[in-house]
Design a protein around this nucleic acid. Structure first.
Lengths: 125, 125
DNA sequence: ATTTGACATAGAGTTCACTCTAGGCTTTAT
DNA sequence: ATAAAGCCTAGAGTGAACTCTATGTCAAAT
């Protein structure tokens, strides 16, 4: 019943340091304490998974904090949290499109590298 | 014939500071000088575009430097540059898949946020 | 002739997201 | 009873990628 910080570190592949850092930064206001020690439950892991997703898709820590604050404040504000999540979803979709465009450019450059090389660096010109 | 640093800044939407920084970091060894001032040509812009693509897809500066060094050394090593580019292409493809998975998680969480909220924060439990 | 503007360098400062150290407490094993 | 392991906090340190400041040069405009 309840995980220690190092068990959560294993489960989430975050370091213990990072989890404490996230807590310090206000990302984990929902974590319980027992005699000063953090005790994590399954729902907490779900929240941390979401936090990791947001981080991995480029949301800065302070925006994640804002999101979590909206979610923990009260029912009225959870909608604002939802709004942030939906907006971020659109950002990530755009991000995928941008990365795909970069990928196309990289593929193009792979095919044209010898030529780019010649034009610029060949002793021949 | 040839662009100034601020013209290149406009074209690439990098700042003048960033371009100088990249040069300092050895990313732009191909840029000519005239009386101490950098003079950029169209091929240089193509190289800078590639550099931006690599940066935007998460390649660290020092790896970009290595790549550029391979490309500028001599014909024998340009193949090594090509190899790096192809490897990076695979990384980016993986990165897109990862981001798509994160996106799916975010979509799932959007649908389950009210429930996650209730389970953890509702006064009712 | 002087002022303005764009360029240059060296190096300091900033921000972000960790990552680690020092020092302390508490439970468990020997 | 002492040592080891695992938790805690506060705060210092790190590395990446800029971003800016100070200072200086030089060419063109007034």
């Amino acid at each position: 019943m309840g995980y220690t910080i190092s068990q959560v570190a294993e489960k989430t592949s975050l370091s213990v340091y990072t989890i404490r850092y996230y807590d310090k930064e206000g990302l984990l206001p929902f974590v319980d304490r027992e005699k000063g020690k953090r005790v994590f439950h399954d729902q907490d892991i779900e929240w941390i998974d979401l936090i990791c997703c947001l981080k991995n898709t480029g949301m800065p820590i302070k925006d994640i904090r804002t999101f979590i604050q909206y979610c923990t404040d009260n029912d009225a504000v959870v909608d604002k949290g939802l709004e942030i999540l939906i907006q971020h979803k659109h950002n990530v979709e755009q991000q995928i499109r941008d990365t795909q465009r970069s990928l196309e450019t990289i593929e193009y450059k792979i095919n044209h590298l010898p030529q780019m090389y010649k034009e610029k660096f060949s002793t021949h010109h």
